[in-house]
Write a protein that binds this DNA or RNA. Structure first.
Lengths: 201, 201
DNA sequence: GGCACCATTGTGGAAATCCGTAATGTTCGA
DNA sequence: TCGAACATTACGGATTTCCACAATGGTGCC
């Protein structure tokens, strides 16, 4: 999925001029004439950033923003507004908007913000992919292996784990060795480091 | 150090009315007539929150904010402004301000924001104290113990650690046992969990 | 000098881990 | 129904950790 700048504005002229501006800076764009239209297209695999007009016929920019947030949107959102409205800007930024820009604005500056937003999104995706591959790795573990791993991470001895799971120590050793192998670690400490901060479930 | 709401505004009347409002809600306040005056008082042990006027004689609110940020200020900052200025609000919030409020505003609302800010500051201090006590704990380790700990956390065997540090395995065992004792853990895995996410240096 | 703290090492045994080889039973999908 | 994957266990030895007891030498402070 290629990163796009998604432009949501009910003013065709603005979408066109913004699109032209961004394309000239090497940013691929897609325009939407209403919040509803974008919402129908949106899914959580989109990458890039979102430029959102405040005032639109039908659903407003902030309303769309709230809905997208609920649905787990990860695209950075830049709000565009024609009339200075401090409370709205404050509210949007506190809810996690990437930026809030007044129209008309310095075109060059806006393009820079968009590029910043794209870069942020890319970095976040890179960071998430690490967590994801780890999760995928954990998914390859069998039920027993996960149970053993959980207890190993609690610092329990094999003997204790065996008692808890009502199986022999040897079996615990086997599961332990297998899961270490699958996780690509040699020791329990390495495993703990690998999962540092994660739930480990 | 008791949490205060530090009011910085060059308008005596506003300081007084704000102070009265907040005191009536149980918030202790201290007023300052200029950014310079507050800056002279500020130190990194202050707790509470900061209400900062944008326009002031001498140093402006945003200027003071920048300086405090450089100096490691952890107080949540609420900006107060008389004239709606979206770019300034955006800039302040992106720099980490807690809130940005237009005057005149709903007194009750402002007091709520202040109380939120105080609560945030308290939570942050609680979270930091955990990290601090951990750091204090690590400081009680001797040089050798830290060296051993570092290697234990890399999942190295005592034998390998002994070779690296050019000492006997027995000595490593002693250091290991001592540092486990000081850190209050029974196993290497517990130690790794304790330091999850920290540098461990 | 005496004392506390640190670093160092040894002996030796109990306990735990690590691991190859081998085997049995279950489950689930082709 | 056959086979792959999983769970289980045993034997036995190599390696490692854990620990009590014991000792030596250096540094820094009162």
């Amino acid at each position: 999925m290629i990163p796009y700048a998604y432009l949501v504005d009910d003013d065709d002229a603005i979408r066109d001029s913004l699109g032209w501006l961004l394309e000239s800076r090497g940013v691929a764009c897609r325009g939407f004439g209403s919040a509803e239209e974008f919402l129908a297209t949106w899914n959580d695999t989109l990458t890039g950033c979102l430029l959102l007009d405040i005032r639109m016929d039908g659903m407003s920019g902030p309303e769309l923003f709230d809905i997208l947030n609920e649905r787990g949107n990860k695209l950075p959102v830049i709000f565009l507004t024609g009339h200075g409205d401090v409370p709205m800007a404050v509210s949007a930024l506190k809810k996690g908007a990437f930026d809030f820009v007044e129209k008309p604005c310095n075109d060059n500056e806006l393009a820079n913000r968009v590029i910043e937003a794209l870069r942020l999104n890319e970095n976040q995706r890179l960071a998430a992919s690490g967590a994801d591959s780890l999760k995928t790795l954990i998914d390859t573990l069998t039920t027993r292996e996960k149970q053993v791993m959980e207890r190993v991470l609690s610092g329990k001895l094999n003997k204790v784990i065996a008692e808890e799971l009502l199986i022999s120590m040897r079996t615990v050793e086997v599961h332990r060795a297998n899961l270490f192998d699958k996780m690509g670690v040699r020791t329990a400490v390495e495993l703990a480091q690998l999962l540092a901060g994660k739930s480990g479930k």
